[in-house]
C-alpha cells in the first residue's frame, strides 16, 4: 500500500448541531409476530397500526423517537428498533 500522502485538511468549523430529536427505524418480523397488539397500543407516537390481519405495520416511521418501548416489550421479539442519526 503506497504510504499515505498527507493532505492538509481545511480546519473544520465546529457548528453546534441543532438539538435533533432522536430517530429510530422500526422493523417488524411477520413470522414471529402473533398479533398481540401491545406495540400498537403502547407506542407513544403512533408509529404503528394494526393491518387487517391484526399485525402491526409501520404507518408513521418519521414519528419514531427510538424509545424502544415496542422492542423491549414485544413478547416474541418480533420487532427491532434501530437508532438512526
Amino acid at each position: 500500500m503506497a504510504d499515505a500522502i498527507s493532505v492538509i485538511q481545511p480546519p473544520t468549523v465546529e457548528i453546534a448541531p441543532r438539538q435533533k430529536k432522536p430517530r429510530g427505524e422500526v422493523i417488524v418480523f411477520g413470522n414471529w409476530c402473533k398479533g398481540c397488539g401491545l406495540c400498537v397500543e403502547f407506542c407513544p407516537t403512533g408509529v404503528l397500526a394494526l393491518d387487517e390481519a391484526d399485525h402491526p405495520v409501520v404507518v408513521k416511521p418519521e414519528n419514531c423517537t427510538g424509545c424502544h418501548w415496542c422492542d423491549t416489550h414485544c413478547p416474541d421479539m418480533a420487532i427491532v428498533v434501530r437508532r438512526i442519526e
Binding site: W32, C36, P75, D76, M77
Partner: peptide, 24 residues
C-alpha cells in the same frame, strides 16, 4: 442492533409457544 436477540438459540424453532401477548 438488538441486544435482546443475541442469546437466542440458533437451532430452535421460533416463535415461542406462549400465547400472543404473554408476559413470559
Amino acid at each position: 442492533s438488538s441486544e435482546t436477540l443475541q442469546k437466542l438459540r440458533k437451532n430452535k424453532k421460533f416463535p415461542t409457544i406462549w400465547c400472543a401477548g404473554c408476559g413470559n
